[in-house]
Nucleic acid binder design. Structure first.
Lengths: 236, 236
DNA sequence: GAGTGGTCTAGACCACCCT
DNA sequence: GGGTGGTCTAGACCACTCC
């Protein structure tokens, strides 16, 4: 007779119990778990409840489920982190600093090859180029260098980004796209050093993003170069 | 009479339909959506199906739901990305390079204050200190500097990490903890420069992680300094 | 107090895929 | 063929919170 100290309460309870067994090595990597019906019977709940719990664990990368194949413990669980890409303004304000913004440049011009490649555009494409500085408590926080395809977002051509950043405007106007992000470390160029008030060659954190619309057409490509000392934190 | 071109198939269909309406601005940021019962009636499915779809969108940060308060469109949708922290070995092999590993140092010693603070340990704590190099096709890829609390993971004290990295050993042995990760850019120290074969002061990408067990006790603190040119990519 | 989402249940059918 | 997870349904009760 098994004694259960903690009652199984709902799908969260089932999830917790399964996690406990995984940690206790009762089910080891590669092992096959009982099927949902049996587990439901053992834990005294309905199959749907077990299903919900196991799906959650599968989403988190701890279990692998296949029709007919059953549910297995993943061999090399890769920790999954989910984090949000905040608007620069909220990022700064969340740290209790006053947000400031300064537009450096805004004009339509021929995009360089690197940008065209990233956005998958033909040679000679003219894009809206916006450069701006984000400030925290008056000092430079990040330098934004952005290219916007006004064929995809015509409205952007009529906005001057002198007060609100393109960052915010785009998020509210053209939401819900897909995209990708790339993080790296680079030495400060002369230009970046001047804008950010640091020495050339200093180590800077760079965040590059490409955003696509629902049809996977590139909307904007942005490169954010952060002032020295910037850290990006993620909960696991 | 509304004409529907595409049938609503299951909860994924409902989700797609809701997304369509969000993009079409039929429901704008801040708006209140119909309640689940009404939506179910309109879309010709059961409430559970609608619930599943809306929960998904809420998880993705597009909707905000409250009991009694209903479901609202989030005003400033912050794009959420979920990415996995791969074992260094898989990261290298996925790029088609041969993985190599070299243990530089392994000994028990008094932890410096910075590490103690991070791991929340009293002064004088002795930890297992492991330094190692990860190689891709024979050249330095990342320098690992790790501290392990053997009070929390006694087994680690009996493992010499000369063949398998602590990275892999820990993942298989002490899984499923919580933790946090912090990314930054730093100039190469003399020591890092020598290990990674670059010049001192070069810009390096640093990934620091703290891992806790189920009781939130710190297991290990690791600092991975990557060779110049490293990029971390994330799908959004 | 009442309306909303959160969840559980029991049953059902289906898609997949291993043997 | 048959067992597994994926999903839908209809109904129910509960927890929260706005009015």
């Amino acid at each position: 007779m098994t004694v259960r100290r903690t009652a199984i309460n709902g799908w969260q309870g089932v999830k917790a119990e399964v996690l406990r067994r995984l940690r206790a090595r009762r089910w080891k990597p590669g092992d096959l778990l009982p099927n949902e019906v049996d587990l439901a019977a053992e834990l005294g709940c309905s199959r749907s409840t077990v299903n919900r719990a196991l799906q959650g664990l599968a989403d988190e990368g701890l279990l692998e489920r296949r029709r007919r194949g059953g549910t297995r413990v993943v061999v090399h669980p890769e920790k999954k982190a989910t984090f949000s890409i905040p608007v620069v303004r909220s990022q700064i304000e969340r740290r209790g600093a006053a947000y400031g913004y300064r537009l450096l440049e805004r004009r339509r011009e021929r995009a360089p090859a690197s940008v065209r490649a990233r956005m998958n555009l033909p040679a000679g494409s003219r894009l809206l180029h916006v450069r701006a500085l984000h400030l925290a408590d008056g000092s430079a926080w990040a330098l934004e260098d952005r290219w916007i395809d006004t064929d995809v977002v015509p409205a952007a051509g009529t906005v001057d980004f002198s007060v609100r950043s393109a960052n915010e405007w785009l998020l509210e106007t053209v939401p819900f796209g897909s995209g990708d992000m790339s993080l790296s470390a680079v030495p400060a160029s002369d230009e970046a050093a001047e804008a950010l008030g640091c020495r050339a060659g200093e180590s800077l954190f760079v965040n590059e993003r490409l955003t696509r619309d629902a049809n996977r057409r590139a909307i904007t490509s942005v490169r954010l170069v952060h002032a020295p000392g910037y850290r990006m934190s993620v909960e696991l």
